[in-house]
Amino acid sequence: MIKLVGLKNCDTCRKAKKWLEAEGFTYAFHDVRGDGLSAEDVSGWAAKLGWEALLNHRGTTWRGLSEEQKADVDEAKAIALIVESPALMKRPVFVSGNEVILGFKQDQMDALHALK
């Protein structure tokens, strides 16, 4: 079973859901806004992916942060920001056992197929 973590209104997450269904994957969707995120999950993903990869600096949520919130971001601060504002996380995140995959392009699709 794959856990797909993202936003229900995110176009990329919707494409990922459709692709998983079409490819015959069994998955559970976790909406970060509705279901929230735990610091434990985010720090685990950051340990595997790198917190820099997990933090979305390009979205409107990041642009809406104060300069103080954006300043001196390290791993602990990034994790706290993502837990507080889950839309700051790049998405989708796929979790299967100990495997964590970030994003939805061909490389990620190939990695998901390798999990099957």
Score class of each variant (00 low, 15 high):
residue 12 T to A: 13
residue 33 R to N: 14
residue 48 K to W: 02
residue 24 G to A: 02
residue 56 N to L: 02
residue 59 G to D: 09
residue 66 S to F: 02
residue 82 I to M: 15
residue 10 C to Q: 07
residue 63 R to M: 05
residue 45 W to R: 08
residue 111 A to S: 10
residue 90 K to F: 08
residue 48 K to N: 05
residue 71 A to L: 00
residue 1 M to F: 02
residue 98 N to V: 06
residue 7 L to T: 08
residue 91 R to D: 09
residue 86 P to A: 07
residue 49 L to G: 07
residue 113 H to W: 14
residue 47 A to L: 01
residue 36 G to Q: 07
residue 73 V to L: 02
residue 3 K to R: 15
residue 76 A to M: 07
residue 8 K to C: 00
residue 71 A to H: 06
residue 46 A to D: 01
residue 47 A to N: 10
residue 80 A to L: 06
residue 26 T to Y: 01
residue 93 V to L: 12
residue 72 D to E: 14
residue 57 H to W: 07
residue 114 A to L: 13
residue 83 V to G: 06
residue 44 G to I: 06
residue 89 M to K: 04
residue 47 A to R: 11
residue 88 L to G: 03
residue 60 T to A: 11
residue 116 K to Y: 11
residue 57 H to A: 12
residue 79 I to S: 04
residue 78 A to I: 05
residue 31 D to L: 09
residue 45 W to S: 05
residue 16 A to F: 00
residue 116 K to R: 15
residue 101 I to H: 03
residue 104 F to P: 11
residue 41 D to R: 14
residue 99 E to M: 06
residue 61 T to Y: 10
residue 73 V to Y: 05
residue 9 N to T: 15
residue 5 V to D: 09
residue 58 R to W: 00
residue 101 I to T: 03
residue 111 A to Y: 02
residue 9 N to M: 12
residue 27 Y to I: 01
residue 80 A to K: 11
residue 110 D to M: 14
residue 107 D to Y: 01
residue 41 D to K: 13
residue 46 A to C: 08
residue 61 T to I: 04
residue 29 F to W: 10
residue 73 V to T: 03
residue 28 A to H: 13
residue 41 D to N: 12
residue 50 G to N: 07
residue 57 H to C: 10
residue 13 C to T: 15
residue 83 V to S: 02
residue 92 P to S: 04
residue 59 G to K: 08
residue 18 K to W: 05
residue 57 H to I: 13
residue 74 D to W: 05
residue 96 S to E: 13
residue 14 R to E: 11
residue 84 E to I: 01
